[in-house]
Amino acid sequence: MELEEFALGATWVHHLDPRIKIIVAVIFSVLVAVNDHLGASLLSLVLPVFLILAARLNLRAVLVRLAVVNAFLVFIWMFLPFTMGERTLYSLGPLSIHQEGLSQALLITVKSNSIVLMALALLSTSQIFTLVHALSHLGMPDKLVHLFFFCFRYIHVIHDEYHRLSNAMKMRGFRPRTNIHTYRSYAYLVGMLLIRSFDRSKRILNAMKCRGFKGRFYILHHYEMKRHDYALALSSAAFAAALLAIR
């Protein structure tokens, strides 16, 4: 399982100050989300696409991630054009496609993709630990930061544990079917994962205590803003102003 594949590059996008990346990504997402002008939405794709190209991300992998988002949007396309609005474009027997519904569906699709692309361009190009540090620098409460961080760190371990258990089940001839035996076995699997994760969390806390942990994380890396960071901040501020002006 590879969660940080985009963070491995070494372009200037990867080296941006994570604090500025988070701030820009958040403000950009809010602006795009509240905007309901189709032209402005289309324009909002420009900045994330530019950043993704600059970060030289593997475009095929980016499309795979986008496909996940757009799979949800399919449902919107299945319902909105038929149910929303007055002006009829086409009639298909009892169903009719409406102008307003169609443009709403298009707007939602463009907005979602734009926000996801921005997150890919800015957030996924930093290592999680860097982002976590940046969040705590930005004043996010310690508890949330720790929660986020440990989720990430132990997803791998729990994922491995899941594979071990499910392989052990397969070795003993288990094949999932639609019956009570299957449901019960999966329930055991999930229950065992929960218990093991709980035990592990206790062991980790013990190990941390043995190394002098008293409830506070100290930070090894400190950040400083460089030229690229100011450039990103300024250009995204200008971009945001342009988006607002079009509305």
Partner: peptide, 20 residues
Amino acid sequence: DDQLFCPTVIEDVAFGPLNL
């Protein structure tokens, strides 16, 4: 896996000294 909880080796080894 219980002992190493930081993503990078340097962060993990530095964890104890920073706590001290």
